[in-house]
Design a protein around this nucleic acid. Sequence first.
DNA 1: GCCCTTTGCGCAAACGTTTGTGCAAATATA
DNA 2: TATATTTGCACAAACGTTTGCGCAAAGGGC
Lengths: 340, 340
Amino acid sequence: MQKETLITIAERTGFSISTVSRVLNGKAQKYRIAAQTVEKITAEARKCNYQPNLTAQSLRTRRTNTIGLVVPSIDNPFFANIANVIIHEARLYRYTVILVDSMENEREEREGINSLMSRNIDGIIVVPCGGDPRVLETAAAQTPIVLIDRYFRDTTLPYVSTDNYLGSYHATRMLLEMGHRRICCIQGPPTSITTLERVRGYRQALQSFGVESQARVSGTDFSIQNGYVETKLALAQADPPTAIFALSNTILLGTIKAVSEAGLKIPDDLSLISFDNYTYLDFLSPAITRVNQPIEEMGILAVKMLLQILKNKEPGRAQILLPPSLIVRDSVRSLHTPPE
Amino acid sequence: MQKETLITIAERTGFSISTVSRVLNGKAQKYRIAAQTVEKITAEARKCNYQPNLTAQSLRTRRTNTIGLVVPSIDNPFFANIANVIIHEARLYRYTVILVDSMENEREEREGINSLMSRNIDGIIVVPCGGDPRVLETAAAQTPIVLIDRYFRDTTLPYVSTDNYLGSYHATRMLLEMGHRRICCIQGPPTSITTLERVRGYRQALQSFGVESQARVSGTDFSIQNGYVETKLALAQADPPTAIFALSNTILLGTIKAVSEAGLKIPDDLSLISFDNYTYLDFLSPAITRVNQPIEEMGILAVKMLLQILKNKEPGRAQILLPPSLIVRDSVRSLHTPPE
DNA sequence: GCCCTTTGCGCAAACGTTTGTGCAAATATA
DNA sequence: TATATTTGCACAAACGTTTGCGCAAAGGGC
């Protein structure tokens, strides 16, 4: 079975390549192709299962109906989730997604984006992994770019993310209202905007209770190991925390491991609250109280924003923060009442 | 910043397009381009950060340095894991991956594969979601295809998967050796090869203990809900099982939910064993004993097999089953000893 | 029957590459 | 000096599309 092209169809139907092209692109009306001709050509195309050659098509049209998606690690369920939403949403508009994994590495990210651009993809959605917007901003001069989840403080790049500050603020306040004062906050990379915002929310909540001097922030990255190490340290202090706020699902896992190794029970001996939602968190015992990011909405918005930029052919300026919600489960104990 | 092409570089350096092309493709030797010329051209290319237009390139060469990956659901950590390995491995050979999510739907799968092929991708790795190899086999006539995880019984298509039979056999034997006899096996889609093989292993193990009449197999698909429903039913029987064998990580979650709703403790009241490995399983309490599939090896092999087919330009016949391993944790109790 | 409009379609250029072939100049050979 | 060989590069076709333009034939108005 050899490849069918416009040429082979043209030969078999006796019409020219251009006529075949126009018919199959639905431009028969516009070019006044006779109904009979349309009939013949579409019949033939269907019969031989013609599939246009997208590389030729996009060489000519400079469009590929493809968007690039760059995430730091597809292995992280949070990003897998984002990817899932974006792939599905893009499909609705007949866009295909090329996935690039930057491995939390700025160089990989840059190369990935270069590779995407040399493929003439129509736009890029990216969860940036560096602190420097410049690479992305120069790239955005050539290809529309929308940031998701992570973004930059002073940037003109459009983004959609969670209001990390707010989520963190609410979570911390909940702990405070439950009577907790010694609350450890285990953070991700200290320069990342998500970390910064979450820590800001944490501090602000403490301040609203007049206990900002109690702030305990530590941690270096979004890894299980980081959660583990920092929890070990926290628990070894003279005045160990009564609650731990893990700023990501990965950090949470490390924390849980350290806590269980210490022989502590959650929430009786230690309360725990986390960022990021995930099916499995309901199956841990106890189920983990957490800040839920509206991933689905974020993904849909990112795609829509990108498509809008593509349609309007103008830069795109939307910078959107969606409110997170608190999913209350069983990992936080009230210090006002005795343990069960 | 306008796009740099071979043409602009040719103009600026004063050489012809072909010379520029050959130099930048490292074919200077072969075409006896003067060292000085090579120097000038590469300098200019570097200066203006030339990136070849991949669509033009692949239109001409009929290669895209891209492979397609079709999975049933990127949201499932098992497939996210596979995708992760394949993306990374492909990158080593400078291949990019286009990810298609078939949503466990044969029509989506077919369309996805068509779309991939019209992009001239060099090959496809697919976790098929149907029971019929024909679509894939005809596609394989045009583009190299390698199956991963799932495959077909009578097919010439190359594949790499786990020896599901063996994994299931060992897991079931372990339960039997621990004294369990009433073992429920909750399966995925009854026609899928992974289900069939796993059930076969389960039955064979029972038979090796002379208790094949005790076989209890039920279930319809790889969903949390299926695990939940089937467990509910199993527990409601007159002679409820002492152990449950969940044939996937998703089924497992449903089972856990139903078990905990029934107020049963694992492993004291009920033993549990599962297929598929996953970080989170160690964080459940108790940690879940499970059959580990060698995902990393499978992914690497799949990519290597595909690249080999591409290189040799011959169909490729390798059909490989890798042995799984048992990860023993705390969810299985021995009936020979009293509960702790 | 003549001119004008409409209908229906084809020609050919262009997108940015790669690559087989060819050819002039430089060098070597006799 | 005449010929053969090598060196260094350019020409042009091709990959499969899309699309502006143009032109022949048919139909309409008078």
